[in-house]
Each structure stands twice: as C-alpha cells, then as structure tokens.
Design a protein around this nucleic acid. Structure first.
Lengths: 221, 221
DNA sequence: CCCCTCCAAAATATCGATATTATTTGACAC
DNA sequence: GTGTCAAATAATATCGATATTTTGGAGGGG
C-alpha cells in the first residue's frame, strides 16, 4: 500500500515531493505524533533514495512538524496542550498584526483577490471536504498577504498548519462542527473590505478562540 | 586556507558542524548576501561530503539565512531595507510579548539566571568582542526563556540572529557604537527584577529601535 | 533480584559515483 | 551587430554502498 501521491504530473524534485507527502501525512495524522520516522521505511514508502527523505525531514524540522535528535534520527513532533495553546496565542497575536497591515496597505487588487478566494471557498464547501480545506487556507492567507511582511506571513502559514494538525488529530473524522463558520468568514471579509481593522481583527480572533478553546478542552495534559 | 573550525573536540555530526560553520559565515558576512553557495566548493571548505553540506543548507533555509531555488541550488539570503525593517518590527512585537510572559511567571531561579548572565556579559565586554557577542545573546535570550513559550523563543532567537547579521554587514568592523548600551542593559535587568513589565518592555523596545533606526538610515533601497 | 558489561542487530550518517538539469560558449544565420 | 540554437561544461539532485552509532538483549557478577 503506497501512500505516495502519484497524482498529476509535476513532481519537481524528489526532495520536494517527499516533503509535500510527508508533511501531508503528519498533518492528517497518518504519521501520528511521536512516531519514529525511519529512513529506510520512508524510503520504501516514497520509493526514492535516502538523501531526499533525509532532506525532506530536515525541512519539516523547521516547520516544527518533525523533531530531530542528533545521531538518533527523526520523529513526528509530539503534541500537547501547552503546545496547542502556544500556537493559539501566537496566532492571535500575529494574524491580527498582519491583517491590520494588509488593510492599511489596502490596494484594490487585494480586495478583488479576497472576494475571489472567499467565493472559491464557498463553492468548495459544497463539494469535497479536502477542497474546502485548501480553499479555506487560501482565504485566510489572502487576508494576510497584502501586508508586505513576508516573514510574518510565513510564520502565520506555519502556525495555521500546526493548528490544522491538532484539528485533524482531535476530530476522528470531519467533525469540525459547522457552527456558523460561513457567517464568520463573511463577516471578516466584509470588515476587511470596509477597511475596518478593529472589527476585522476582533472577528478573526474570536473565530480562532472559539474553535481553539473547544479543542483545548478535549485535551488532557 | 581552511575556514572550518578545528577547535576543541566535540563535533557531534558532520551535518551539525557544517550547519554551525556555515551559519557563522553567513552571520559574519564571510559569505555575503546573494552569494551562490556551490556544494562542491563548500564540500571542500568543510572537508566533508555533499550530503552533510546539503542538509546543513536545508536547515539554514528555515533560519532564513539561505535561499533555495529548486533545481538551481542555494544562495545566501539577500538583504534589504524592507527585510531589515520587518525584522525590527517583528522583534518589537514578539520580544515584549515573551518578556511579559517571563516576568509574569517570575520564578526565583529565573531571576538568578538573569543576574548571572548579565554579570557574564559585563565581564565579557571587557575582554573579547566575540565573547561579548555570545554573552549578549545569552542575556537577551534569558530575558525571554521563562515565558514557557518555546516556539516564541525560537522565533525571537531567529530574529535576533538575523538582526546581528545586518549589524555585522553594516559595521565594517566593531563599530557598534557603545552608546549607553551598558546602562540600557542594566535598566532592563532592574525593571525585570522589579517585575515591572511595562517599564521593561518599553526599555527593550527603545533599546532595539535606537540601533535599528540608525542602521536603517545607512541602507539604500 | 537488580545492575553492569559486552555482543549482535538495526538504524543513522556519510561517502563516492552517476544521472539530470541548468548554464555557458561559440558558431551561424539574419 | 544581434539573436538563436546546439553542443560542451558545470552544477545540482539522487542513488547505492559503507562506516559509525545506537539499541536491545544475553550472560555473568554483585
């Protein structure tokens, strides 16, 4: 049983392919937290050499999805309540910062991009759940990508993924209770288009905290 | 002419050694911004194989010290005014956040560690300039390391290094004008020991902004 | 019964060589 | 002169094999 995506064409380099696949496997929980990641085993799974696997794992290390213990190999990053709450805290600090900057720069083409992404997300939500995930991330990142602060955006993207990982691990399946997520997104969008930074950031934060605290309660130590 | 440190004993793995050496070379400017980093060339410099070099460069990528262009190798990360200002902005947001948390947690052993590091820094400043650099970073990191927020600390450490790089690149030598740095450090320490978070963070921010804006003025586009 | 030492098995880290891909060079036509 | 294409060159990415290190366990002492 080969988990590697043999999907449509372009796999630039073996390293990059391995990176994407392993990343996905960790985010979805196919590789559970703490799991020992043996080179040989992964080499087989991805049918590639040891070097690309090794390099991919190195890259995942800096995404904080993989832990490296020198001379002792790699393992999927552990999870914990403290870690989850740190992610939440950082997101609630960094994303509003980026969103404010985006709004402040507010160019017309950004607003268009935003509307478009939001539309795609709505469409996707009626179809496939994984399509929605992709579109959801795209929308949230679009909120931040007019800030002109690439490092900050990178941090936010990283934290977004780490958060998704917890959600995937917590929900045995697609539980992700639909709450009023659609409404919340709409409100955030509207506030952003209104250049109302205070409202937009408040909405964003409570959007995060609500799901955050719900997940947090479901975790032990 | 071999730049590799053959210094005292313990080089755990070749990869880690290469990582440390390359990192230092980029931070000091021995490998200037934008420089093409050819595997073969570095392999010779560090007298090690291609794999460790490659892996070290991958790791440096996530420290934002090296840029990777798929299928086209690595190069030392470029620099620019916008990037520098983003680093400054992020530091002025993240470090106060960490410092506040550290103070809030305020354990006795943390205060001791703080006093100690400050002492070491003062001693080091009378000796070697590179000793001082190490101690200076240790002091600043100690201010943040009681926050219990490891990811945040990691971001701060990363940004600290990126900032140091700009300082090294700007100063042809040890210019680093001594201003009243010693006083500033003392004040920050005192405020932290007083559990005066507002004062401590204000002092920290102006400590950064002062050198920051000075360097920023020295840069073109 | 627990602990320490030493050996075998397994896994990591590293090397050297090869296949692939980008870049340069130079000839040729326009 | 200038632009284009193709071969030659150079560098990257990847593989397969080897050396080193850790891990797990068996066999004695304490």
């Amino acid at each position: 049983m080969n988990v590697t995506r043999d999907i449509a064409g372009k796999e630039t380099s073996a390293t990059h392919g391995a990176y994407l696949t392993l990343r996905e496997m960790i985010l979805t929980g196919a590789l559970p937290p703490g799991e020992k990641l043996k080179i040989e085993q992964l080499r087989g799974l991805l049918n590639t050499g040891a070097s690309p696997v090794r390099e991919a794992l190195s890259l995942l290390t800096s995404d904080m999805l993989v832990e490296r213990i020198d001379q002792r190999g790699f393992r999927a990053a552990p999870v914990g309540k403290a870690n989850f709450e740190e992610i939440l805290t950082l997101r609630c600090t960094l994303e509003p910062m980026a969103l404010r900057a985006s709004i402040a720069n507010g160019a017309a083409d950004w607003e268009e991009r935003l509307v478009l992404r939001h539309h795609h997300m709505k469409k996707a939500s009626q179809r496939d759940a994984t399509d929605f995930e992709v579109a959801h991330k795209a929308f949230h990142m679009a909120l931040l990508d007019n800030a002109g602060l690439p490092m900050l955006e990178r941090y936010c993207a990283q934290l977004y993924d780490l958060n998704i990982r917890y959600r995937n691990l917590a929900a045995g399946g697609a539980s992700y209770r639909k709450r009023s997520i659609a409404t919340e997104h709409q409100e955030i969008l509207d506030a952003a288009l209104d250049h109302d930074a205070d409202a937009a950031t408040d909405l964003l934060i409570s959007h995060y905290r609500r799901t955050g605290e719900y997940l947090s309660r479901q975790m032990e130590a």
